[in-house]
């Protein structure tokens, strides 16, 4: 079973880099050769062939605050390939669109899940906010638990 972990974000925009930091933390902890950890600044169409080769995909990203959420909160949701096509390629390519591309172009989209952490700051700076820093080890543990559960299936 091939698993792809995709941590993405801009490490020069404070908590936006959380997905990258989480993937970098996970990388040495992953022992199975069936698990690939990949980091990038943003999602782009060139990732779709890689996704199409995976059975499971784990996306890790920072999220903007919506009502009732506190910075540092971790959310998990399963993803489906997007059925409505976006109007174009922008700098905001989302995981559902990427899954749709994989399915449409290569005939397969993996089962996918998104781990997101509500960010406290997207300001121009390196490093994480105190809230995101506190969330990082919890997030890594949750992803590891998710991977373990997949292995038991």
């Amino acid at each position: 079973m091939k698993i792809l972990i995709l941590g993405y974000g801009n490490t020069l925009r404070k908590d936006d880099g959380l997905g990258v930091y989480a993937a970098q933390t996970l990388s040495p902890l992953v022992e199975s050769s069936d698990v690939e950890v990949y980091t990038c600044q943003q999602l782009s169409p060139e990732l779709s062939p890689m996704l199409a080769k995976a059975d499971h995909a784990v996306f890790i990203d920072a999220a903007t605050t919506s009502s009732g959420e506190n910075p540092g909160e971790i959310h998990t949701r399963s993803l489906q390939p997007r059925t409505t096509r976006p109007s174009g390629i922008t700098h905001h390519f989302d995981p559902e669109t990427l899954l749709a591309m994989a399915e449409s172009l290569y005939g397969h989209a993996p089962q996918a899940v998104l781990f997101s952490v509500t960010a406290a700051s997207f300001e121009l700076d390196e490093g994480l906010s105190p809230e995101a820093t506190a969330a990082l080890p919890v997030l890594v543990e949750q992803v590891q638990e998710y991977l373990s559960a997949l292995g038991e299936k």
Binding site: G88, M101, S104
Partner: peptide
């Protein structure tokens, strides 16, 4: 239709060209 006149609009009718574009860009990257 400008809503469909983009790379995603080509997925159905021209998937090979999209695949080729993705692969060439991926190679350069």
């Amino acid at each position: 239709d400008p809503v469909k006149r983009n790379m995603f609009g080509m997925l159905d009718k021209h998937p090979q060209i999209v695949r080729d574009g993705v692969r060439l860009r991926q190679f350069g990257q």
